[in-house]
């Protein structure tokens, strides 16, 4: 019988996401960030759950969780701290340097992040909304394999947002770059010919995403998102690229909101694992399916 990651046990946990990290305003989208700032003196608490599954062979399920608290320091500047967590169930697939062994655990804390956001232009006041986002993170678990890995990252994103139809339609786009230094921890008992380097690796990741959403009823928005990501690293050059796209549904209440997004991988490339049959996807560090639920509370 297949064992799935249980969701209930990780409700209080943090989250580790494959995508650029979330920054809490009202998340109209699951993956794309808006440019709206949090007002001065206000606070926002968010809980994210991201389920990643299916690498094409073997069994692979992962649950990323994130607990985030954001504060509006001024009307233009906000800061957030985030605790990430990871649950994983992988078996029947080994990939040199990426998936060393079967692994299963319900949830464990995986990383921490501090983020800053500064708003230059307001989407409701200026011709376009524009914000700068910067995040510094340290992860001690590898989101892909569930193994110990020290990952230090700094990420910068430019966030753009525009309203149409008095704000009933929202268009948003992000462009960003992330630099990472990652070091795998040694693992005992691996096959002698299995590649598991424990020297530091440097990675550069570029992300471009866009989303559009429409308020079709009071409090309800429906839309779509598209997410492109590519990573280059020492030794291999372009390690991967992928395009994910899918629908998103958002409910915005006065004191809380929720967003549900399904973002499967549509196309991908770069490295493939031996015997990979889905040759139009990147399945080493990505999966075929991804679903995210975000819930936010405003104070």
């Amino acid at each position: 019988m297949k064992n799935k990651i249980t969701v209930g046990a990780v409700v209080l946990g943090g989250s580790l996401t494959l995508s650029a990290t979330g920054f809490a305003d009202e998340g109209l989208f699951g993956y794309v960030k808006g440019a709206e700032p949090l007002p001065k003196g206000s606070m926002d608490v968010e809980q994210w759950f991201t389920v990643r599954s299916d690498k094409g062979q073997g069994h692979y399920d992962a649950l990323d969780t994130k607990t985030e608290v954001e504060w509006g320091i001024t009307d233009k500047f906000a800061t957030a701290v985030e605790l990430y967590g990871l649950g994983i169930n992988t078996s029947g697939l080994m990939i040199d340097a990426y998936l060393p062994k079967d692994e299963k655990y319900t949830w464990k804390p995986a990383g921490l992040e501090v983020a800053l956001k500064y708003n230059f232009l307001s989407p409701a006041k200026d011709w376009i909304g524009l914000s700068q986002y910067v995040a510094f993170s340290y992860f001690w678990e590898d989101v892909n394999s569930g193994q110990r890995k020290d990952v230090y990252s700094v990420e910068g994103l430019l966030l753009a947002q525009k309203y149409f139809m008095d704000g009933q339609v929202v268009l948003a786009g992000n462009l960003g770059i992330e630099a990472t230094s990652a070091t795998r921890k040694p693992i005992d008992g691996l096959p002698p010919d299995f590649e598991w380097p424990t020297t530091p690796e440097m990675e550069i990741e570029v992300t471009a995403s866009a989303g559009i959403t429409y308020r079709f009823a009071e409090n309800w928005f429906i839309g779509g998102e598209i997410f492109y990501q590519t990573e280059h690293e020492t030794v291999v050059g372009q390690e991967r690229w992928s395009i994910q796209a899918g629908p998103t549904l958002h409910y915005g209440g006065q004191k809380w909101w929720a967003t549900l997004t399904w973002l499967p991988q549509i196309r991908g490339g770069g490295l493939m694992y031996p015997g990979q049959t889905d040759t139009d996807l990147h399945l080493i560090e990505k999966t075929k399916q991804e679903v995210r639920l975000k819930i936010g509370f405003n104070f």
Binding site: K4, V7, V51, L63
Partner: peptide
């Protein structure tokens, strides 16, 4: 029986929706 995460996640927004009612 283990919780299947995707159906669980889909149920959450349905359960949370209770109309607006805060105007």
């Amino acid at each position: 029986m283990p919780i299947r995460p995707i159906p669980t996640l889909l149920m959450v927004p349905v359960a949370l929706v209770a109309g607006t009612g805060y105007a």
